[in-house]
Design a protein around this nucleic acid. Structure first.
Lengths: 151, 151
DNA sequence: GTCAAACGTTCAGCGGGCTGAACAATATCC
DNA sequence: GGATATTGTTCAGCCCGCTGAACGTTTGAC
């Protein structure tokens, strides 16, 4: 059971995620950024956005997004302004520096064959992951497993 | 950029991992277990093992494994004994209860079509993940990215 | 206008990754 | 034997997920 091919799929995914994210460490650390912040910059590329919809798009809780945005703001990559129409809301916009570092990241990922080149059909893998995320991520609130025989 | 298919692959993997792990929550919570503990039970199925090699097999640091094993021990799923031949080492063995809950988990994963059934070719996905983990995970210590133009 | 419900955000605290540093036990070199 | 690695584990502390609870704002029922 010590070989990966016998592992539960969830574990396989999380280990793979950490390995890939680890390969970004040097890039991110030198820019006072983490991958949690990076995906926010990615999501903001289309334009400003409320913090809540940011959380929903990124598939994290509002609380987690709150903290991530706070760090991004401290690093100078996003700005936070109150929505004049609904003062509960905070509108997040990317700054020039944020746009810059995001562009760098996109370039780095595109020119990054050595890390993920190990996988035979990289695009197929991505396709299946997208499928998985889209089908399971539509409503994170639901309980995916049935009551599960309560012993 | 708000659609998953444009996300960095690392993010895709970690979101997918969380979604799949989330689907195990009910199973695990009712058994005082987490997926970090579950993979340890999985690795111990072949027999007892030092804590360090457990960490290496699971692709986590010794420190993380130390904490995970401590929780498993508190839950009564593993026992920890000093190695008589090398008193630095702690030998971890699974208990009867541990073996039981692991068997339940294996059964649950096998009978679990609805969660991951969304993916077209589930086995192919697993195969690619295994490939990724094996090729990147052989030596976690190496820096995978080159020096990355230091500005 | 007022009260209650819903919404958006934050605070507190936990699990699970990580790094860096400390420590005991072992191995090695003289 | 004694000084010096090296190994296995743990402690402190960080980031990023999570839940539960609190707070202010808005909306809606009355």
């Amino acid at each position: 059971m010590t070989e990966p091919h016998t592992w539960p799929t969830g574990r396989l995914l999380s280990v793979a995620a950490r390995l890939v994210e680890h390969s970004w460490q040097r890039f991110l650390a030198t820019r006072d950024l983490t991958h949690a912040g990076l995906i926010v910059l990615h999501l903001l590329a289309d334009g400003p956005c409320s913090q809540r919809s940011l959380a929903q798009s990124a598939r994290v809780t509002d609380q987690t997004m709150s903290r991530t945005v706070e760090r991004l703001h401290r690093a100078g990559y996003v700005s936070r302004d109150a929505d004049p129409h609904d003062r509960r809301r905070t509108i997040i916009s990317v700054t020039g520096e944020g746009r810059e570092v995001h562009a760098e990241a996109l370039r780095a990922e595109r020119e990054d064959p050595q890390v993920l080149g190990a996988v035979q059909d990289y695009e197929a893998l991505r396709g299946q992951l997208v499928e998985l995320v889209m089908s399971l991520g539509v409503d994170r609130a639901v309980d995916l497993r049935p009551p599960a025989e309560p012993d």
